[in-house]
């Protein structure tokens, strides 16, 4: 058996802060104007990670289902809000749609993973929290990328869409090509990661597991589990958001809301 992981304490972290101080000094010498940002960023990272360590540490000692569910819901809310703010589209209730879609897709995947793959019979935060977090982070990217692409290509292709509407196409049909393109675009990062994983990068979760003492093969298998789940969840999320958001660009009388697109370019 491998030795237990070397414990890091606050003393060790202070040593690491020494590296940051060196970086601050160096960037000061080069007049990069980054000294302040370096300090702020390092302090924020320390405080945020410390807080998360405390919270998750506390959650890990609980096994009540509602505590885990509350933590995951909070994460979904933040992911939905962040994703809605970063997709370049302003729409009332967009964050709710994002949160709902991401939450539902993540829940579905988690159900599949815990019941059929891992066969967990308890609410074990050790599995649920990291898996949920990774899924949410990735579906957030898929959702905002797909909506961003849909809106930007729609604002460039109003002529195409209105031509189809004028020929009697339903809004869904008029948007078909752009929708497909948007879903495609949102999946590229995930698929690229899968193509080069292990060759160019060793993913964080696999690294962490190996540091924690797992056999590398087990860590690799866990990484596959999470990658395949992310790929499926991203596709599902992109599809749902693109369909739901696509409808928002049309009135019930099949008119393109051009005014809503005008602020995009």
């Amino acid at each position: 058996m491998s030795a237990p992981l070397i414990a890091l304490g606050w003393k060790e972290i202070l040593f690491l802060f020494g590296i940051i101080i060196a970086a601050v000094a160096w960037s000061g010498m080069l007049r990069l104007g980054l000294s302040r940002l370096f300090l702020v960023a390092a302090t924020r990272a320390m405080l945020q990670l410390g807080a998360v360590g405390l919270v998750i540490g506390w959650v890990f000692r609980q096994s009540e289902w509602y505590i885990i569910l509350a933590l995951l819901s909070g994460m979904a809310l933040v992911a939905g809000y962040t994703g809605a703010n970063r997709c370049g589209v302003r729409m009332p209730g967009l964050w709710l749609l994002f949160t709902g879609t991401m939450g539902a897709v993540t829940a579905l995947l988690m159900l599949y993973l815990t019941q059929l793959v891992l066969r967990l019979d308890t609410w074990d935060p050790r599995y649920l929290v990291p898996l949920g977090g990774m899924l949410l982070g990735n579906v957030m990217t898929a959702a905002s990328l797909s909506v961003e692409r849909l809106a930007s290509s729609l604002s460039k292709a109003t002529g195409e869409v209105e031509t189809l509407l004028a020929l009697g196409a339903a809004p869904g049909r008029a948007l078909e090509r752009l929708r497909r393109e948007a879903i495609h675009a949102s999946l590229i990062p995930t698929l690229n990661t899968m193509l080069v994983v292990g060759v160019v990068t060793i993913p964080g979760m696999m690294t962490g597991q190996m540091l924690g003492g797992s056999p590398p093969m087990q860590a690799a298998l866990y990484q596959m589990l999470i990658l395949f789940s992310i790929a499926f969840a991203s596709l599902l999320t992109a599809t749902v958001t693109v369909y739901r958001i696509g409808q928002q660009f049309f009135t019930p009388a099949a008119q393109l809301k051009r005014a809503q697109l005008s602020h995009l370019n």
Binding site: A166, L167, G168, A169, A170, A253, A254
Partner: peptide, 8 residues
């Protein structure tokens, strides 16, 4: 009018 029928 249903919009699509009108446009036809």
């Amino acid at each position: 009018w249903p919009a699509r029928a009108l446009r036809r």
